[in-house]
Amino acid sequence: MKDEMVEFAAAHAADLKGLRIASTETTGGRVLEAVPDLELVRLKSGPLGGDQQIGALIATGEIDMMIFFVDPLTPMPHDVDVKALMRLAIVYDIPMALNRATAEILLRR
């Protein structure tokens, strides 16, 4: 869903500008190529611990919302990490968008 995330970021660059964004390595790099003026911190690749780094940011109160596009028809090699990340977002009551429609609602804040 990286292509969709890049399209979303480009379409909502004005809404995202000024927000501190945390992202996994590859997705963050692709988003920054499309929208280079975003304040985006790139963490490790998801399967190499990036999902867990984002989970730690949730647990320490440094994440206010999560946008994580999921393709339910494609298996993820790091499915366990993604489920753990979603679990933390639920436990810490972080608004979470798993698709574009919900992400657009979150950005309206």
Rank of each mutant, 00 (worst) to 15 (best):
A34R: 14
I58A: 07
Q52F: 07
A22I: 12
G55W: 05
I90H: 12
L32G: 03
M66A: 07
I21P: 04
I58N: 09
E104V: 01
M86V: 13
A9Q: 01
G50L: 02
L88S: 13
K2A: 10
A103F: 09
K17A: 10
M86N: 13
I54G: 01
P36Q: 11
F68V: 06
E7R: 09
I58T: 05
L32M: 10
L73A: 15
F68D: 13
K17Y: 09
R20A: 13
H12K: 07
L106K: 01
L57T: 08
E25W: 07
D93V: 08
M96P: 04
L40I: 08
D81K: 00
M5W: 00
P77G: 11
L85M: 01
P36W: 09
A101M: 14
G29F: 07
T24Y: 02
P75N: 14
S23W: 03
P77Q: 03
D15V: 05
E7V: 05
L88Q: 08
S45D: 03
P75M: 13
L32V: 09
M96C: 08
E7K: 11
P36D: 02
V31C: 06
G50C: 03
P77M: 06
L98K: 06
A89F: 10
L40D: 11
A22N: 05
A97E: 02
G61Y: 14
L98P: 11
I21V: 00
A9T: 00
I67N: 02
R87S: 13
D81S: 03
M1I: 11
I67T: 10
L48C: 00
D64Q: 08
G46M: 11
I21Q: 08
L88G: 07
D15R: 11
M1L: 11
E7H: 10
V6C: 05
V41T: 15
G49R: 11
A59L: 10
G49Q: 02
D93E: 09
R108D: 11
V6K: 03
M66Q: 08
I63E: 12
T26N: 08
A34Q: 06
I58W: 03
A13H: 07
A89S: 08
I54E: 00
L85A: 00
M96Q: 14
G46I: 13
L48S: 05
D79Y: 08
L98H: 07
E4D: 15
D15I: 05
L85Q: 05
D81C: 03
L48Y: 04
V80Y: 12
D81T: 08
K44Y: 05
